[in-house]
Design a protein around this nucleic acid. Structure first.
Lengths: 232, 232
DNA sequence: GAAGAGCCTGTTGTATACAACATCACGCAG
DNA sequence: CTGCGTGATGTTGTATACAACAGGCTCTTC
């Protein structure tokens, strides 16, 4: 019954914990992690920790430098453009490859997330927004049975998601941006629910595609303010 | 200058070596690898080897079992169907996301591969076919500058590529299948060259998509012989 | 006072001893 | 003869000591 997966479960737990900390900026870009501290926190030795860090490094969230430390990567929107472009294309595949019609329970979860979105709109909070966004993503992923697609989408999602928090948090119009973004997110959830109710999951894919693309465009515009008009 | 990448280079070298051995069936499915043997072969300790094995396990080529060994995964075409479906979709993106027009040198390399394909057709050899197929794949990947797309396509390619060798090698009509497959591969290369010469890399993507889909269909048909006619 | 060399500290990378675990063979009892 | 338990053996997982390395600090010298 155990399937010898005792240590596998622990690996997964530590991995998800650290990934979440990085993506919620508990570990901001540039932050240096010490393997021994993590080993102590998770009541283990450096060996299993190093395996987790190696994977996070593979995924581009960390970078280990011999003799220096393990550093949370700092990324700019320009470096992420390619990832976003790919995410836009993959979004559409959710409803195209092995789509799974959600059962009543799952639809209910979508509704609950939407409700939490309404509550959030009344009392904006960046961290809660990021967390809600994450949960929505994972719920979306249940709509396809294509396991490789899920894995890859997840990987790319976590490569890009902290970028919004990072960009927004240091801007003057921070609170307005947040409120604005929450509104867009509410609309994505509403559109998604509507699409699900049509029974055509391809539409869900199209909705997602549109919103990922627009989300990137907003961030990009924020980082590259138009000088005014012309100029190639 | 060294950038401390001494050990990173070694990691990459061992990783590619083992991956190739798995995909050329030097390590056939079910084969058990011993960490200590590999450590000795590559003149190092188990520690760096384990990092390589962990990554190969992440990618689905190996599976480590505590107390038993590290085993090359055995996969059936049915498990790979989802991967193939995704590969079909991704193939098209080569020419869509950040396409890079090949320079004269690269086109020359395509021509060389095609020439080797002609030579191969005269003296069929499964192993050489697999190797040529791999080189062609890597050359195709130079046609997009989208790094995440390249990484992911590579990962999925190596998850599926050994399946042809495995399926074919135990079939009666082995030599005929091989000759047939080589002919198809020649056509893919010829089509690709023609597409490149049109200057439209989207066409290259369409060609690739078609051939990946057909290649999977042939394998699938081989594994699921039609009983004769009807029957759902 | 400034610049440079060399030590000192702290961190990741590697090697290795040991623990946990699975498998198989052997023996013993029924 | 068969079935089960137990120990021997071999393997991966973990802990830990040590090597390699980077960066800063100090001391020296011009």
């Amino acid at each position: 019954m155990n399937k010898g997966s005792e240590s596998r479960a622990r690996f997964e737990r530590i991995y998800r914990t650290l990934r979440q900390r990085i993506c919620l900026l508990d570990y901001p870009p540039g932050r240096r992690l010490r393997e021994e501290d993590l080993a102590e926190e998770f009541k283990t030795s450096r060996t299993p920790i190093r395996r987790v860090l190696a994977r996070l490094e593979d995924e581009g969230l960390l970078r280990s430098v011999h003799g220096v430390g393990t550093i949370v990567t700092d990324i700019h929107i320009d470096d992420l453009q390619q990832v976003y472009q790919l995410r836009v294309e993959l979004a559409e595949l959710i409803g195209k490859l092995a789509p799974v019609m959600p059962d009543r329970r799952t639809i209910e979860e979508f509704r609950e997330l939407e409700a939490r979105g309404r509550a959030l709109a009344k009392r904006p909070d960046a961290r809660e927004f990021a967390r809600l966004n994450m949960e929505f993503f994972h719920l979306l992923m249940t709509l396809t049975a294509n396991e490789p697609l899920r894995e890859i989408s997840e990987r790319l999602y976590y490569q890009t998601t902290r970028n919004w928090l990072k960009t927004a948090s240091r801007l003057a119009q921070y609170r307005e941006m947040l409120r604005n973004e929450i509104r867009f997110f509410q609309r994505e959830m509403a559109d998604t629910l509507a699409a699900i109710e049509t029974g055509d999951l391809q539409v869900v894919g199209h909705v997602r595609r549109a919103h990922v693309a627009m989300s990137f465009a907003r961030l990009y515009a924020e980082a590259h303010p138009v000088v005014c008009n012309e100029q190639s």
